[in-house]
Amino acid sequence: MSTPPFSPVLVGGLLLRAIPPEIVQPIADRLARRVQVRHPGLFERLNPLGPKRFLVDVVDLPWQFLLMIADGEGAVSVLRKGDSAEVDATIRAPLKVLFGLLDGSIDGDAMFFTRDLVYEGDTEAVVALRNALDGADIDFLDDVAAGFGPLADPAKAIAQKILKAVARVETDMEILGESLVSPAVRRAEAQQRRIDELEERCARLEKTLRRSKTLPT
């Protein structure tokens, strides 16, 4: 999926374009360290693969994330969209899908079968990463909130409220999106019906023609 979905994340991502990766990098570093400490088994599961580099392209955000794994440890580097990097595999999906993969609430295979998630490169590395993430029991909100120390619980509660509000806005935007494209969809459906009719007529004509050719003269 190269076209991002019409969502609050996409709108937010457009607003975030002005923020350079250097500003986001320290946050990514801190989160990577926290995940490492709270889920030590995650990178240990990937050890048999040796060093691997994944480019995670969040299609509705202005940044990409370069995930580097080696010797049971992981690090993340934030890149601007379009920046090139030498990687073993590239994973491309909207933020919502990637979060779902992180916490195991979304089935990666199903997302891939339906093409909501695409990847290029080393399939074995991508499969291993998916399996390791799924087995790590990551609760991303929990991991983020843990950084707030004694205020972790209130921070998590606020984050959950924000996510609920985003989900509501997302539903509204879906309705809006459907409303905007419905005239075009109706036209496309009418055209498809017309094409089907023409194909049927062609098939009938071809059949008639074949019969007439086989008739004795």
């Binding site: 979304i106 089935d107 990666g108 295979d109 199903a110």
Partner: peptide, 9 residues
Amino acid sequence: QRGKAYVEK
């Protein structure tokens, strides 16, 4: 080989 979401559902 499938994830937790598949297993749960």
